[in-house]
Amino acid sequence: MTKILLIEDDQKAARLLKRGLQEEDFAVDAVHSAEEGEPAALTGDYDLIVLDWMLPAKDGITLCGELRARGLTTPILMLTARDGLGDRIAGLDTGADDYLTKPFAFDELLARIRALLRRSTLTQPPPLKVADLTLEPQSHVVKRAGQVLDLTPKEYAILELLMRQAGHVVSRQQLAERIWTADLIALDNLMDAHMRNLRRKLDPEGMPRLIHTVRGQGFRLAEAADDDA
């Protein structure tokens, strides 16, 4: 069943939309803030996200940009009362795949959802593979030797970056800038803690190690390495 994440702070509107979508045979989870929506989007294995622009504390356009920066490729349909051309351009430029202005007819919402799902099926990114390790960018499912690994969002982000650069060294500075969007200062201990936890899950006892430390340079994901620390 197709899974949709609805991020809408108006709880009455969220209930109505959720009920309508469920009647169309979609599985729908509804949350009401960016703080709830971000972890759900990154870990919930959704086929599509319906995201309201006007959320409390952190707005939808900011959340959309942050999700794209984290590598999330799930289609996002932005809902908003803003109907200016500049607003529509801003929403699309931030990473939304489509933009629907309130008030809207439910049938139009359905049509746009189905169009995005068709497009997503055609453009679904291929899985990343290194040895017996696989990562599905669309669903965020990671498996080692066929076993699903339970990774935190940070661990997943680190692993995806290493897998996209498989066989090449990823420096600490690159990790700091891409995963924490910050300078390396004061991040060394935090980075090492995340790397230890990721290695423990990825390379259990008896399994060939895939994450290797390259002295003075950074980390490399590969089937074998001669320059481990």
Rank of each mutant, 00 (worst) to 15 (best):
A176I: 07
L161S: 00
L184N: 01
A176Y: 06
G167P: 07
E160G: 01
L187G: 02
Q174H: 12
S171V: 03
D150W: 00
R209P: 08
R199D: 11
L190T: 15
A157S: 15
N197I: 05
I158Y: 01
L190S: 14
L162V: 08
A157T: 12
D203V: 05
I179D: 02
S171H: 05
N189L: 06
D150V: 07
S171L: 02
M191P: 00
I179W: 03
V148C: 03
A166L: 05
R200F: 15
N189W: 02
N189D: 07
L198Y: 05
L184S: 08
R209K: 13
I158P: 00
R172A: 09
A186T: 10
M191L: 14
R199L: 07
S171T: 15
G206V: 14
P204E: 14
E155W: 03
A193W: 05
S171R: 03
A186Q: 09
N189C: 04
A176N: 04
T181V: 02
L175R: 05
W180R: 07
E205S: 14
D192L: 09
M163I: 02
M191W: 06
L151M: 10
G206F: 12
W180F: 15
M207I: 12
D203L: 06
L162S: 01
L202F: 11
L187C: 06
L161C: 05
M163F: 07
K201I: 10
H194F: 04
D192N: 12
G206P: 14
M191H: 04
T152V: 04
H194K: 10
L149P: 08
D203T: 10
Q165S: 14
K154H: 09
G206H: 12
R199C: 13
E160T: 13
N189V: 09
P208K: 05
G206T: 14
Q147M: 06
L151F: 09
A176Q: 05
I211C: 11
E205N: 14
Q174D: 09
Q165G: 02
W180K: 06
P153D: 10
E177V: 14
M195C: 01
L151Y: 03
L149D: 03
M163C: 11
